[in-house]
Design a protein around this nucleic acid. Structure first.
Length: 279
DNA sequence: CCACTCCTGCGT
DNA sequence: ACGCAGGAGTGG
């Protein structure tokens, strides 16, 4: 469910609550996450540590504790929230941490595509992030834009697939890639090598803009996404094409189309985002 | 690039 | 009953 803006919304809502708190006890379910057992021992090892801060790059979130820490990936349906211990524990809860202020940090994930992974020291964190490109918010920096443009302009892959590749830019998912391509008026099926420099830069600027707006609206909620206090996002009111098949394009009125690309739905306007002629 | 996997839940 | 879902990985 969550892309970078949703994860950032969780990070921002949880950080003020968690910083300075100590992990007093840890409970985990016995189910697997991402096809691997929950690392019970590693999580138990975090008891007694104090939270220093919350970090994020792309869709990857982490809680920095004294020395070590905990990486959290939300997958499609993960929710990380602070709740009263008396609040009913919802189905599909896989982690409950008792905090020293009497509250609980809870992780819930019906589809279990998420991941909980303790890490050791700065080196452990660095290793976990090694394959991630710069966060999409870093596209505000000219040097990052230049580096990403170089990668983009040299690939024959479709723009949609490149932007979804977390090694190139981290944090964009299906929603915001569709949105950015529409904003930049570029077809998702166009290839990187078919871009002129100005078009490429405009696309990266559109990615940054869409990303910032989504953060400003505290993320997009269709069904599952909630912030650290269980509140829904607001960006679903502002989507241009995503999940709007058959509705008029906000720019030209032509009906938005949906097509399957790389196995996933792509939403676009055939008039504003004409297909490239050849490859 | 494709097909298929991990899962549950929801809308048609 | 079936298709589809914000992600990510594998194998072909």
């Amino acid at each position: 469910m969550p892309e970078g803006p949703e994860v950032e919304t969780v990070r921002r809502t949880l950080e003020p609550h968690l910083v300075g708190r100590r992990f007093e006890a840890v409970w985990t379910s016995r189910l697997k996450l991402r096809n691997a057992p929950i690392p019970k021992r590693g999580l138990q090892g975090l008891v007694g540590r104090r939270v220093r801060g919350l970090g994020r790059r792309g869709k990857q979130l982490w809680i920095e504790l004294d020395d070590d820490g905990l990486l959290v990936r939300l997958g499609m349906t993960g929710q990380l929230t602070v709740e009263e211990p008396a609040a009913a524990r919802q189905a599909h809860t896989h982690l409950v941490v008792d905090l020293d202020d009497g509250q609980q940090l809870r992780y819930r994930d019906p589809r279990r595509f998420g991941d909980l992974r303790p890490y050791a020291g700065a080196a452990g964190l660095e290793e976990a992030l090694a394959d991630l490109g710069p966060d999409a918010s870093e596209l505000s920096r000219p040097d990052v834009v230049e580096r990403v443009w170089q990668a983009l302009s040299r690939t024959d892959r479709a723009l949609k697939d490149v932007l979804l590749d977390q090694r190139v830019i981290a944090g964009l998912g299906n929603i915001y890639v569709c949105e950015a391509l529409h904003l930049a008026r570029l077809s998702p099926f166009r290839r990187g090598t078919q871009l002129k420099r100005a078009q490429g830069l405009a696309l990266l600027d559109a990615c940054l803009h869409v990303y910032d707006e989504a953060v400003r609206h505290r993320g997009t909620t269709f069904s599952d996404f909630v912030d650290g206090y269980g509140r829904e996002g607001g960006h679903q009111q502002h989507l241009r094409v995503f999940q709007r098949e058959g509705e008029p394009c906000p720019e030209c009125g032509r009906l938005v189309r949906r097509e399957v690309q790389s196995g996933r739905s792509t939403f676009f306007c055939a008039k504003c985002q004409p297909r490239p002629r050849a490859r």
